[in-house]
Design a protein around this nucleic acid. Structure first.
Length: 978
DNA sequence: GCAAGGTC
């Protein structure tokens, strides 16, 4: 007993003493083992102790140091390997047939530690137990911040109150590390939030579309795609889009002949070729006249000689993207292989870290020993000596990732083989050139007056198909992927058979890639365009800067893509049709019922479903008909609705049902005090307070927004009972479409214009059919303003209209009309004042035609022809001599420079009035005129496809049907048979 | 079996 007591006492004594001298222990976690080791090495001046953790790749480095307020503390340095946690669906949703893909937009997701990283997690959990503080040393970028929070999450699960700090450093040098240690900050939650949003969206969108595409198309094209994974990703699809777009540009290019004068002069075996100041002429006769003028006066007079030295700049320090591009161009090694080799060279210690966005050498990086290392090489050693003599003067760029230096050689070797040797040599030569001086040259420009030798003909040539270097440059320009992932995305679209590589190293789209892009284009969704990703990136930046809330962006983006997904399912036949032009006959496929996730209630106009959707710009909501574009019924919710979702509960009052309740989150202060900011209510009309707040009146079985509550083009009904709950039934309305509204918000249309055409007008034929419909619908809705019952005229944008008088000389001089009441004329509303008295509906199109002194058409209301602007077309008569002189036709009512170029023979109106077809002669917009327009139309319509186009194509070399020939399939016939 | 982003 005594012995036991003594032992206990001694232990307590030891413990008591140790508490007085025990040093504070701090856990430091870097993003990778290499960084942990380097930082520990710098901070300990090489005196660190190394021990094993649970992960064999992530060691533990310990040393004593002073940091924070501790003069002497034990620093425990370890690392993760990139992201420690991953996001996934719960196990019950991971099997592809476990749920409808649309559910993946809403099912919960969970973070978990993948099996490969459990050892790292155990190390953290074990080490944090003995530490009092945690310092995050992950890379100082967005992903690094998020990885830091993953470390924090794991450590706090063990030690909830652990104090956490963040070290910010731009490079692993004594100065930078000491500075970071002296100026520890708190981790940035906002930056990490932005990454959480990216991760979740990538998962939901990628998984939903990939399952949808793959499951559908393998059934529709069982021979060609049975085993094919048809993935969708926010980076891989834009990458595919670049290839397709360039291919189409090449296909659509029409060469144009030109002529130029070529003058050469041979002197002492040196041939000088002179450049014509006119460069080239597209008019043969004009060029020929000049040519004759020259040969009649064949003596050249030297009028000026200008001689000067000229420099060629040495290359900029090498970053990852530049290395990928240059190696692809110079050595014909693709980016994926380049990075694989570079990583190997890095781990062997031959080169610096190859994944870097930095092209500026740090000032405290001593380049002399690095150049000296290379002086012993028999090929470039002499050049290295010259660099040393002149002193290394690197040419720096202007980018830094605040983490790694430019790629450069660390030590000399002549033992490498194959691509390792070639890429190592490239990095060395680039580094030496970067550190050398600019190339010196001399240029003499001789200007001569006139002399001619011969006239050369040529023709304009199309742009080249994209090389891998071009593709990487485009991805970089548009923010698709990161420097670390460009090569992977390119590899993905190759492995998915979306694109192929020609023997000359240029990319061509494959049939699958082409069909997918065209199919989505024809639905009206630009899934393969880079701006979707760019918009997300802008939102992520806003989150990280505190301008947007994480949850707001997440909800809006998920809803936006979910809406697109639902529409894509509904219009999936367009995908089948687009692909059938390349893959042969589509099999009939009956999918599961189309997703109905966001259904609010039946549409009072057409009986289809009204669904809750996010506006295309991602800001705000509307309730639109699933039968769009046939039915354009829509209700736009005000901007102060920050979130909206469909509840499963059904309103017991509103009919026809079922009418689902909606869950709202309102902007604080924007709704009456009786309505909470988070509120679940019915928009079917039974809740008068909510209806009034949202600007909804129940009229004629449909919804209309009360004027003044919105900037969108939705208006009160006609004088026959707006706002009265028991108004006439729909069947009594003479022209029901007068209430229909476009589903494309004006802001989105403007964006579309700004993106597509600086002039603000989308060229007909280059825009897909759905987009044209939207364009017309939007314009059309603007034209369909009606009078309020109290005789106050409400214009298209919802404001009170203003009375004007026609000043222009003409038949309407002095006549009064209503126009937009806003000073800046935000809408195109127009209504003659004298027509208002008769109760006739205002119609901007027909009245604008009158404003332009165009005689009113003799057609009855509702029978007018609309042009592609959505306005009433002008009825005109051919004046030009010819077989059609005197024949009547319809054209755009706007001045020609501003108009849409619409053309329709009057005698064909009955057949074509609603097709929106346009074939204005001489404008190259009609079918068969060649170029992109003609081709796109041919591709977009199976009804126009010739039998030959529908037949399965055969491999040109082996004769086997395309879908059965592996080479044919791989190369999609646009490649050579290999 | 899906994404994209880290990393080994």
């Amino acid at each position: 007993m005594k012995r036991i007591f003594n032992i206990f006492f001694r232990r307590n004594a030891v413990r008591s003493v140790s508490t007085t001298i025990e040093m504070v222990r701090i856990l430091n976690v870097a993003e990778k083992n290499d960084a942990a080791k380097s930082i520990a090495d710098v901070m300990s001046r090489g005196h660190y102790r190394k021990r094993e953790g649970f992960s064999k790749f992530n060691k533990i480095y310990e040393f004593e140091s002073s940091i924070l307020d501790h003069q002497n503390c034990t620093m425990t340095f370890t690392s993760v390997s990139g992201h420690l946690l991953a996001l996934e669906f719960p196990i019950q949703y991971r099997k592809w047939m476990s749920c409808s893909p649309v559910e993946l937009f809403n099912v919960p997701v969970e973070k978990y530690c993948p099996k490969d990283y459990e050892d790292i997690k155990r190390t953290l959990e074990n080490e944090i137990r003995g530490c009092q503080k945690l310092v995050i040393w992950t890379d100082c970028d967005r992903e690094g911040e998020n990885i830091g929070f993953e470390v924090i999450q794991v450590c706090r699960a063990v030690k909830p109150n652990i104090q956490v700090y963040r070290a910010r450093f731009s490079e692993i040098t004594p100065h930078a590390i000491a500075n970071a240690a002296r100026n520890l900050v708190r981790p940035d939650q906002l930056v990490s939030d932005a990454v959480d949003v990216r991760i979740e969206l990538d998962l939901r969108i990628g998984a939903a579309f990939t399952r949808f595409q793959t499951l559908r198309l393998k059934k529709v094209f069982p021979e060609a795609l049975a085993e094919q994974l048809i993935s969708y990703g926010s980076c891989q699809f834009p990458t595919l889009g670049f290839v397709v777009e360039r291919y189409k540009q090449v296909q659509a290019f029409v060469p144009e002949p030109f002529w130029k004068l070529k003058v050469t002069h041979l002197c002492d075996d040196v041939k000088a070729e002179f450049v014509w100041k006119r460069n080239r002429l597209f008019n043969h006769l004009a060029c020929f006249v000049l040519y004759h003028h020259c040969i009649e006066n064949p003596v050249a007079t030297v009028v000026d000689v200008n001689s000067k030295s000229k420099n060629k700049w040495r290359p900029v320090a090498l970053d990852t993207v530049e290395m990928e591009k240059l190696v692809s161009r110079k050595l014909h090694i693709n980016a994926k292989e380049t990075m694989r080799v570079a990583e190997k060279l890095y781990t062997q210690g031959f080169i610096s870290y190859p994944r870097t966005e930095t092209n500026i050498f740090p000032k405290d990086l001593d380049l002399v020993p690095l150049v000296t290392e290379q002086a012993r090489d028999p090929n470039w050693g002499e050049f290295a000596q010259q660099v040393l003599q002149q002193g290394p003067h690197p040419r720096n760029g202007n980018k830094t990732d605040n983490a790694h230096p430019p790629i450069h050689p660390l030590k000399y070797t002549n033992q490498l083989q194959g691509n390792e040797q070639r890429i190592y040599e490239f990095i060395v030569r680039h580094f030496l050139a970067c550190c050398s001086q600019d190339a010196q040259g001399h240029e003499t420009v001789v200007e001569i007056d006139v002399a001619a030798e011969r006239m050369v003909a040529g023709e304009t040539s199309p742009p080249s198909l994209l090389t891998e270097a071009d593709l990487i440059a485009l991805m970089e320009k548009h923010g698709i992927g990161t420097d670390a992932t460009h090569a992977e995305h390119i590899e993905t679209i190759k492995s998915r058979m979306y694109v192929g590589l020609r023997p000359d190293g240029r990319f061509v789209p494959g049939h699958l890639g082409m069909g997918l892009v065209e199919g989505y284009d024809q639905m009206g969704y630009e899934m393969s365009k880079p701006h979707l990703r760019a918009e997300l990136e802008a939102d992520l930046k806003a989150i990280s800067e505190g301008r947007k809330q994480k949850n707001d962006v997440l909800v809006q983006q998920v809803q936006k893509y979910k809406d697109v997904f639902i529409e894509a399912c509904r219009q999936a036949l367009k995908l089948d049709e687009a692909l059938s032009q390349y893959l042969g006959q589509a099999q009939t496929y009956t999918p599961h019922p189309a997703p109905t996730a966001s259904v609010v209630k039946p549409c009072p106009h057409c009986g289809h479903n009204l669904t809750l959707r996010t506006k295309k710009n991602g800001k705000g909501y509307y309730i639109g008909c699933s039968n769009y574009p046939e039915c354009r019924h829509a209700l736009w919710l005000p901007d102060f609705v920050l979130e909206a979702d469909v509840d499963s509960e059904i309103c017991p009052t509103c009919q026809p049902g079922p009418v689902h309740l909606l869950r709202f989150r309102f902007r604080p202060g924007s709704v009456p005090p009786t309505i909470p900011n988070n509120f679940t209510g019915c928009v079917g009309g039974c809740d008068e307070m909510l209806s009034e707040t949202l600007g909804i009146t129940r009229s004629l079985g449909t919804y209309n927004r009360v004027a003044g509550n919105t900037n969108n083009s939705v208006h009160r009904g006609t004088g026959c009972g707006t706002g009265t709950p028991n108004a006439r039934s729909l069947s009594t309305i003479p022209n029901p479409t007068v209430f229909a509204t476009s589903q494309t918000p004006p802001a989105d249309r403007n964006n579309q214009r700004a993106r597509g055409n600086p002039a603000g007008r989308i060229p007909l034929g280059l825009m897909d059919a759905n987009a044209q419909n939207r364009e017309r619908g939007q314009q059309g809705s603007a034209a369909r303003s009606t009078m309020a019952p109290d005789s106050t005229i409400v214009c298209s944008c919802g404001h009170n209209a203003r009375l004007f008088t026609v000043r222009k000389e003409g038949p309407n001089t002095g006549r009064q009309f209503y126009g937009c009441g806003m000073p800046q004329k935000v809408c195109t509303f127009f209504l003659w004042a004298d027509e208002q008295e008769t109760g006739r509906q205002g119609h901007a199109g027909s009245n604008i035609a009158q404003l332009n002194n165009v005689p009113p058409t003799s057609m009855q209301a509702g029978e007018e022809v609309q042009c592609n602007c959505g306005l009433a077309a002008r009825r005109l008569t051919v004046q030009k001599d010819g077989p059609n002189k005197g024949k009547e036709f319809y054209g755009c009512s706007k001045p020609r420079a501003e108009g849409c170029g619409f053309f329709q023979w009057a005698c064909n109106v009955q057949d074509n009035r609603f097709t929106g077809s346009s074939s204005f002669p001489g404008q190259g917009r009609g079918p068969g005129t060649g170029g992109l327009t003609g081709q796109k139309r041919k591709l977009s319509s199976t009804s126009e496809a010739t039998p030959a186009a529908r037949r399965p194509r055969r491999c040109g070399l082996c004769g086997v049907e395309g879908s059965r020939c592996r080479s044919f399939k791989a190369d999609m016939t646009m490649l050579s048979h290999v």
